[in-house]
Design a protein around this nucleic acid. Structure first.
Length: 358
DNA sequence: AAGATTGACAACCGCTCTGCA
DNA sequence: ATGCAGAGCGGTTGTCAATCT
């Protein structure tokens, strides 16, 4: 912890790199590779710490770096990714070949935040500023009932992706979160239209994550990007398996979930982990600004009512069902029970707490 | 013309995570 | 199980050129 050990050594230069230093580092890594960063300064004759060498290489000297200004497409992608991933710059950078996390972070802080504000979008929540603005009495302005009826619709555009034989693809284009306001026992559901998406070798670095399921996932995503992946994994796995193109390596996300005590498995053996890491009720308060949760909170029910959450292959259902047993993740298309429902019986309490007045 | 301000970019710092002995 | 070192991440600060006053 704390300062890197090599930095304790004396006579180490700090600050901007000179062309001579760049040349030394570039020549050394080109010839020998970087190997152990801490040994680079000694081997290359640089008066720098290994950490500084690493940073210089990653952010400036790497030959695969794309220099120059960001294109509009890149900026748009960064904004989309930030909406889902937040300040996870390295994960965002993984979606933009040739760009570094540092570069993207700087762009965001110096430019994109302002642009979003100019468009009337809050750069933190990615919601219209009007939604987080207060009225004269200091109360939050809430959407109208019409707005509640269809809230959080998102288009997932995968039209530019290329087929990937090695891993497969999944099917999902559009997911709408909707609330039926007329019922005394409101139903919340997600509808989707179908479209194929390609899966890269690693789920966490897939472009799908940039566009997948906001605002649904952003409601649950703050601490667990894998949750979003799980929503899609279920479809991807099913689809790619049926297409005969599933890769046994799976993805990092699904593999991780299968080894996670807080995840559970459906009867096809695939992992779901939607609510892992969210047992603490306090965490849910963070999501109350999300359209999904906001919409739910606008429903006028008792705080004690529980949600009976059911997930269908299409559409996804979120049914409120006071006092019923909570079953999380049960597919109505499958008759066999989940192998491990108890975990989610626990977690759903957190969800219920988050929904507040639902 | 000179100082102040701003913006973009580069680099550092403190911390966490992970692998290994 | 524990401590250590290396790697990596995100927040913050530093630098410098352009622009403003």
């Amino acid at each position: 912890m704390g300062r890197h050990s090599c930095c304790y050594k004396q006579k180490l230069r700090k600050g901007l790199w000179s062309p001579e230093e760049d040349e030394k580092l570039l020549a050394h890594i080109t010839k020998y590779g970087h190997g152990c960063w801490s040994s680079i300064p000694k081997q290359s004759g640089l008066q720098r710490c290994g950490k500084s060498c690493r940073l210089r290489w990653i952010n400036y000297l790497r030959p695969d770096l794309k220099r120059g200004t960001f294109s509009q497409e890149e900026e748009d992608l960064i904004i989309e990714l930030h909406a889902v991933l937040g300040n996870r710059w390295s994960q965002i950078a993984a979606q933009l070949p040739g760009r570094t996390d540092n570069e993207i972070k700087n762009l965001w802080n110096s430019c994109l935040k302002k642009k979003l504000k100019q468009r009337g979008i809050d750069p933190v929540t990615h919601k219209p500023l009007s939604e987080v603005e207060n009225d004269e009495d200091g109360n939050k302005i809430q959407p109208t009932s019409d707005e509640q009826n269809l809230i959080g619709s998102t288009i997932i555009d995968g039209s530019n992706t290329q087929p990937s034989d090695s891993v497969g693809h999944f099917q999902m284009q559009q997911l709408n979160y909707e609330v039926s306001p007329s019922s005394s026992n409101p139903t919340h559901w997600f509808t989707q239209t179908s479209k194929y998406f390609d899966i890269d070798t690693e789920f966490s670095s897939n472009s799908m994550m940039s566009t997948l399921l906001p605002p649904l996932t952003s409601a649950f995503l703050s601490d667990s990007p894998s949750m979003a992946a799980t929503y899609a994994t279920r479809h991807w796995v099913a689809d790619s398996a049926s297409a005969g193109s599933a890769n046994n390596n799976n993805t990092s996300a699904s593999a991780e979930l299968q080894s996670n005590d807080n995840s559970f498995y459906d009867n096809s053996g695939f992992s779901w982990g939607l609510m892992e890491n969210h047992a603490e009720e306090t965490k849910w308060s963070e999501y109350l600004d999300n359209p999904l949760l906001m919409a739910a909170a606008l429903q006028n029910q008792t705080p004690q009512s529980l949600y009976n959450i059911e997930i269908k292959s299409e559409p996804y259902f979120l049914n409120s069902s006071p006092s019923s047993n909570t079953v999380w993740g049960q597919s109505q298309n499958q008759e066999q029970p989940l192998q491990n429902p108890d975990i989610f019986g626990k977690d759903i309490q957190g969800l219920t707490a988050a929904f507040g007045h639902v």
